[in-house]
Nucleic acid binder design. Sequence first.
DNA 1: TGTTAGCACTCTCTCTTATTGAGTGCTAAT
DNA 2: ATTAGCACTCAATAAGAGAGAGTGCTAACA
Lengths: 341, 341
Amino acid sequence: MTLDERKKLILESIIKDYVETAEPVGSRAMVKKHGLKISAATVRNEMSDLEDMGYLEQPHTSAGRIPSQKGFRYYVDCMMEQENLDEKETQVLLHLLDDSFQEVNDLVQKIGHFLAQITKYTSFVIIPSVRLSKFKYLQLVPIEPGKALVLLVTDLGVVMHRNIEVPQSITAPEMELIGRMFNQVLAGKKITEIQRSDLQQLRDELKQRRKVIDRTLEAIESLLDNSSEERVIISGALNIMNEPEFKDVDKLKKILAFLEEETQLMGMLPESLGDEVDIRIGQENQSEDFKDLSFVFASYQTQGEQGKMGLMGPVRMEYWKAVGSLDSVRDIIEEIIKKRF
Amino acid sequence: MTLDERKKLILESIIKDYVETAEPVGSRAMVKKHGLKISAATVRNEMSDLEDMGYLEQPHTSAGRIPSQKGFRYYVDCMMEQENLDEKETQVLLHLLDDSFQEVNDLVQKIGHFLAQITKYTSFVIIPSVRLSKFKYLQLVPIEPGKALVLLVTDLGVVMHRNIEVPQSITAPEMELIGRMFNQVLAGKKITEIQRSDLQQLRDELKQRRKVIDRTLEAIESLLDNSSEERVIISGALNIMNEPEFKDVDKLKKILAFLEEETQLMGMLPESLGDEVDIRIGQENQSEDFKDLSFVFASYQTQGEQGKMGLMGPVRMEYWKAVGSLDSVRDIIEEIIKKRF
DNA sequence: TGTTAGCACTCTCTCTTATTGAGTGCTAAT
DNA sequence: ATTAGCACTCAATAAGAGAGAGTGCTAACA
């Protein structure tokens, strides 16, 4: 279904106005505001057509029109021109990321913050699971007699550690040796790929230090368990409070509670994303609770694995800005990761 | 100023009712509900007296009475019996903490969560600054040629790390040596106590490896800077949304924004706390923004240093429960820390 | 045949005006 | 000192009366 130029123009005007003001748009006001060359009556006729086609709706008989979710969908699919970060915004982001950051997590945190700030929506950035990154380095660090620290570093600079107990008798050089063995067997493997057989091999080679090995293996497993779920970092959750459609505390509570439960958010992520952004408008989200929220998802690549990020806002969202920001940020983030790791 | 028994009884009844319902309490309703042996008219007279004394106030002429902030203060100071955790709650907490946790931070996180859940208020727990804990162990871990990790462990099990760049030429044994030197000089010192002279001594002893030393020192400093501010962990921020006095989105926004700014919260903590809890009712907080919030603060001791925790709720707060919970939790937390570290 | 002006009609929003009911304060009786 | 009785107050709710923005329809127009 395609619309003629004038209908498109009118739909676009209504969307822009409504996104800005959150109020139904009337024919007269619209003609005035946009300085259109046609009369209000004509606009009314066109509006009526658009309503019949399902792209507009009326809150009540004598109100102006607002875009329906189908209207937004049409706009997004067929008419929208995305609005990337401008020069200044890009500078701000680059400057923000210029400071030394230690690992991917810091980077992601900052990006999330930036996205929320620039769009005024709620942002979330998902850090790819460490399971998918590569094992880089392991060391056993003796802390005090009977205690040691398992230190695990991945290729993206993520450092994980965990305390273990070891026999009092074991010496520092022995521990070092054990660490070295681990490194030989595991170096460069994807963390998901570490197999029982590898671990078994280790056990065999280091029979005489079984206890330390076992503890270390347990520690590694526990580290992976703890961080195997992808972590999501949410920023700007309070931004939704500025949207007039969420002046109601109960609605708000539902949304904020949803954001607090990371698992819920993870659950509604798109399985996999290409280069395209994925836009979910209102009811296109399964859940009843999100029927007046929209989401825009995008992905970024790190060392071959996929991270995700997104923005959440009202249905009355500046999709062009959201999509453009995500797109620009994706480019920047990928470049930086390539350069740094 | 002391009140006679009957006035106390009436004040208490009003407080209990008002805390429960958030509605002004009328004389008749009160007599009925509590099965008092005196008539509504008598209660009215007493109420009138209490109002003259400033312990009660009337939202408007023909409404019931609500306790004034002074009334709450009197109750808290002179009449309140704190309500500690009961058997079951204690069990829940102990069970929660039974699982292995790696360091103080995990412990604190869980405690915060528990406090928020049990009281239905917003909790915050402050982790004592690492500056105050003791240096336990440092190691330089070679990660790959030209890169190393500075690993710093404190006596409370907090592990901090940071990447540094090192000359390609340096060997693992050399690094180990450097680490050992650091340990000798710094071992057991409080982190605040590490003096320039100590660091200078190190520089002298290890002249030939100046670059590594310098980088390591920078890393240590940066670690300390990053974690020298006491960290605060906030739980149950959304609980305030259940209080009828915060049905207004703008009020809510102010409070949530306040909670997001950790520094602001830190700024209003009491300087030092004895064993007593510190209660701040409404306007007793300096800021205008908190005039309808109450805070209850308490401290806990870790290895000689003081951590703090607290609860935030409406002025209409169950102070007895808040104080009791904090008191009980303090005992439990201190015992566990003593046992573990 | 598409566009426009004119006009009656609709519906929300806001501002007033009752009405109700919980609660008080005062007075007089116990 | 306590209590019953009663007039009075005031918020909260409901009901009614414009006002205003916007529509849909009809008839005139290019």
